[in-house]
Design a protein around this nucleic acid. Structure first.
Lengths: 242, 242
DNA sequence: CACCTTATGACAACACCGTTGACCTGTTAA
DNA sequence: TTAACAGGTCAACGGTGTTGTCATAAGGTG
C-alpha cells in the first residue's frame, strides 16, 4: 500500500480516534519528541507512540510512510527550533560561531532525537532554510562558491557530529556515565610515568578537560582555519582580479 | 539469569554444536564481522548470527551477556586493527593526519560497531595506548601540557564524531541512502534563485560535494589551526623564555 | 574403566517490533 | 439527503532479543 499517506495540504476530514484524539502530523511529532525526552530512545516505537496518542498504531501510517519518515520529521522540527531564535549580526565568524553553538545546544536539548537524526538529510522546509542561511553567511563573507560549499559542508557536519557524539554520551544510562567518568580518575590518572609518560605528565589536565565537550575548542579551531583560508583566497583574488 | 556468561579463561569444555561447530568468543566476533561486511548492518541479528555459526541463537548468550556486549567486543577488535598498522614518522602534522584518516576509515569498515561505540570510554589496553601515542605526538611537537590535552581532546573527538556520523550514513538501508542522494539532486538543485539565491547559485557544487565525507576537509582545517596555534605559542615562548 | 558434575548447547516460549490488507464508519461535498 | 472516501481499526505475518528449562557430552576423579 503505497498511497496510504495523504499530503498534509489535502487533509480535510479530521476524524477522532476511538479515544477521542484528533490526529495530525504536528501532534504525532510532538508526542514522539515527548516520548523520547521522557523515556529515552528505545521508548519510540510505532506501537508505543500509538498508545501514547490514544490511537491504533497503524493509524500513524496514514501520516508517515514508515518510521524513517517520522524520524525525518522529528529531525526537521529539531532544526526548526534551533534556527527560530538565531539572528545574523553581519560578522560571518561570529554568526557561524553562534550558529554552531546553537546547533550543538539544540542537539543536547533533545539527545535521543539528535542521535537518531543527526546523520540524515531531510530535504524538508527547516533544513532547506538552514542550508540557505549558512551558505549565505559564507558567500557574504567572500568565499567563492566551491569553497563556500566545502566549508559549509565541514561546518555543518562538525556541528551535527559533535552534537550527536555528546548527545549519545548524555543519553547513556546514569551508571554507565559515572563509570566512564571514573575511568579517567581511576585508570588514566594512575598510570605510572615509566610506561605511560605522556598520560602521566598530563593526567591532571586530562581529568578536568575530558569532562567537558570539546566542541567549542574544535569550533574555534575550525573558524580560525576558515578565516586564514579566506584571507589567503582574498589575497590571490586581489592579485589576479577578474 | 545473570551468570550465564563464563569468563573466557574459565572455559574448558568445548562441546560442538549439533552441526559440529566448536564455538568461541573469537569465532563469534569473527563471524559477526564477516556477516556485517558481507550483508550490511541489518544482517546482524542474534538469530542470523546463530544460523551463520551453525548453532542455536541462544548459545551465544553463553559468551556475551547481550548484543551490546557483543558489539563492544567487535569495536575493541576494530580499535586494535586500526592502531596495529600505524607508524609515526616524526612529523607531528603528518602523523596526526594519518592517524585521523585511519580512525575514520576504521570506523567506516565496521559502521554499526562504530556508531555504537564511538562515544564510549573503555579504559582498555588499546584505547590507553592510543591516548598515550597521540599525546606523545602533540607534546613532541612542542605543545605545552594543558594545550596538548585540549588539542588532543578536540582531535580525537572530531575523528570519532565524524567516524560515527559517516558510519551511520553508510549503515543506512540502501533505499534510505539512495533517497538522500536524490534529495540533493531533486530538491536542492531545483530551488529557484528568487527564494533561495545561495542554494541556487551553488547547487552544482552541493550535489557533488555532499556525496562525500567532509572529514578530510575538517581534519585539514583542524591541523592548520593547530599549527598556527603552535607557532603563536612558540613565538610567545621565545619572547619570554622560562 | 565408570561415575559424577556441570558447562554448554538446544528448544520453546515470551513479549516485543514494523508493516499491511481488509474492513468499517464518520465527515464532508454535492 | 446521500454517496464517496479519508482515515481509524483490526488481525495477522514474519521478524526481533531474550530467558527458563532440559538434555547431554566433556572432563575430572577414583
Amino acid at each position: 500500500m503505497s498511497d496510504r499517506v495523504v499530503p498534509p495540504a489535502a487533509r480535510r476530514r479530521r476524524r477522532p480516534t476511538k479515544q477521542g484524539v484528533v490526529l495530525s502530523e504536528e501532534l504525532i511529532v510532538e508526542t514522539a519528541m515527548r516520548l523520547l525526552g521522557e523515556h529515552g530512545a528505545e521508548a519510540l516505537s510505532v506501537r508505543r507512540l500509538g498508545r501514547a496518542l490514544g490511537a491504533d498504531p497503524s493509524a500513524l501510517y496514514r501520516y508517515f510512510r514508515d518510521t524513517d519518515e517520522l524520524l525525518l520529521a522529528i529531525a526537521d522540527e529539531l532544526i526548526g527550533r534551533t534556527l527560530r531564535t538565531w539572528r545574523p549580526s553581519g560578522d560571518w565568524r561570529a554568526d557561524l560561531r553562534d550558529l554552531g553553538l546553537r546547533m550543538h545546544a539544540g542537539a543536547l536539548a533533545q539527545p535521543q532525537a539528535a542521535v537518531l537524526s543527526s546523520y540524515r538529510v531531510t530535504g524538508r522546509a527547516y533544513e532547506i532554510q538552514a542550508v540557505e542561511t549558512a551558505l549565505g553567511v559564507l558567500r557574504g563573507a567572500g568565499f567563492p562558491d566551491a569553497e563556500a560549499v566545502r566549508i559549509y559542508h565541514a561546518f555543518v557536519d562538525q556541528a551535527l557530529a559533535f552534537g550527536a557524539l555528546d548527545s549519545a554520551n548524555t543519553a547513556l544510562p546514569k551508571a554507565a556515565r559515572e563509570a566512564e567518568a571514573a575511568v579517567w580518575r581511576a585508570t588514566y590518572a594512575r598510570l605510572p610515568a615509566d610506561t605511560h609518560p605522556h598520560i602521566h605528565a598530563t593526567a591532571r589536565h586530562l581529568v578536568v578537560d575530558m569532562r567537558h565537550s570539546s566542541y567549542p575548542t574544535a569550533l574555534d579551531l575550525f573558524l580560525s582555519a576558515a578565516a586564514a583560508r579566506l584571507a589567503q583566497l582574498t589575497a590571490v583574488g586581489d592579485a589576479h582580479p577578474v
